[in-house]
């Protein structure tokens, strides 16, 4: 390895090769190996307890693509959730970051407040919002009645057509502060002189945002978009907390669908679903990266 070293220290350096062994052993045995096995399981009809199972080829995949309304429903919900959360959370996080980018006492405190929900567990957040959304006497409806907007009251999660949007709102409340911090770091990396130069050229507030801030904060925007997308696919805990286990069709997303299939002892089919789930996330991330590269090129 290191030809420049003397024999003694070379022998010593060999000890270094044992350093990654525990990490690799854990990782390969408990994670990489099962991940690869998922491909093998996905081709079977194994139920999780029988001693035997059949190889069914691509049957699970065709079933998933053509004959499974619950999976399609979960995919649609997930898509709605992702689109709404990505747009709303990114805009809100950037807005807050622009307001709080200058480090003063007040803005440091406010950043801490907006970040706070991120540290809570998803189940805790779900329980907070169960009460916010409770149709009888919950926080939102009480507040609407108190300010004379009783006509705007709603059943929130109880309406199957809009439930997923209320889920999206909770997710934004949960994680906007975290993405705000990413944007603040991005904004602080923009050199002051650029704004001064733009101001000298007579650029107004909007032009300065459009031609200085927006292009230069793009790397942070890319991170936020990618992370928020993946996060909205991982909203698993939040959905179980808000919608129950298993969640009803209105709140079912891909991760909860995979889990429900697994709980129903359809191990082979659940493995197939999990692989499609993984592929969808990979595809979305790839499309996003390309779009960001093109937009900022």
């Amino acid at each position: 390895m290191s030809s420049t070293r003397s024999g003694r220290s070379g022998r010593r350096a060999r000890a270094l090769w044992f350093f990654p062994v525990p990490a690799l052993a854990l990782y390969l045995f408990f994670f990489a190996y099962p991940t690869l096995q998922a491909f093998q399981y996905a081709l079977t009809d194994w139920d999780g307890y029988s001693a035997t199972y059949h190889n069914v080829g691509l049957h699970n995949l065709t079933r998933l693509a053509t004959a499974d309304d619950t999976f399609r429903n979960a995919a649609e919900n997930n898509l709605k959730l992702t689109v709404v959360v990505v747009l709303a959370q990114t805009a809100l996080a950037l807005g807050l970051a622009l307001y709080l980018v200058r480090t003063t006492r007040a803005s440091t405190l406010l950043r801490a407040v907006f970040f706070l929900p991120t540290v809570l567990s998803s189940v805790s957040v779900a329980f907070v919002w169960r009460f916010v959304y409770d149709p009888d006497g919950g926080l939102l409806n009480s507040a609407l009645r108190a300010v004379g907007l009783g006509g705007w009251q709603s059943v929130y999660l109880g309406n199957p057509n809009t439930a997923v949007f209320w889920l999206a709102l909770t997710q934004v409340w949960f994680h906007a502060g975290q993405m705000m911090v990413v944007f603040i770091a991005g904004l602080q990396a923009i050199p002051r002189e650029l704004y001064e130069a733009a101001e000298l050229d007579g650029a107004g507030r909007w032009s300065r945002f459009r031609y200085v801030t927006w292009p230069l904060v793009a790397p942070a925007t890319g991170i936020v978009l990618a992370y928020t997308t993946v996060q909205s696919f991982k909203a698993f805990d939040l959905v179980l907390g808000l919608g129950g286990n298993p969640p009803g069709p209105a709140l079912d997303i891909l991760s909860t669908r995979v889990y429900t299939t697994f709980s129903n002892n359809q191990f082979g089919y659940a493995a197939a679903q999990s692989l499609v789930f993984m592929a969808l996330i990979a595809l979305l991330t790839w499309v996003q990266r390309r779009a960001i590269r093109r937009a900022t090129a």
Partner: peptide, 29 residues
């Protein structure tokens, strides 16, 4: 050289895989 980066790459590759991808075989294991 390469060895360090390969180990790093293998370990970090897990970031791209959502936990739900492996739950079935993981449970069995």
């Amino acid at each position: 050289g390469r060895a360090g980066w390969i180990v790093f790459g293998v370990l970090v590759a897990g970031l791209a895989v959502p936990a739900q991808a492996a739950i079935v075989p993981q449970y069995v294991l």
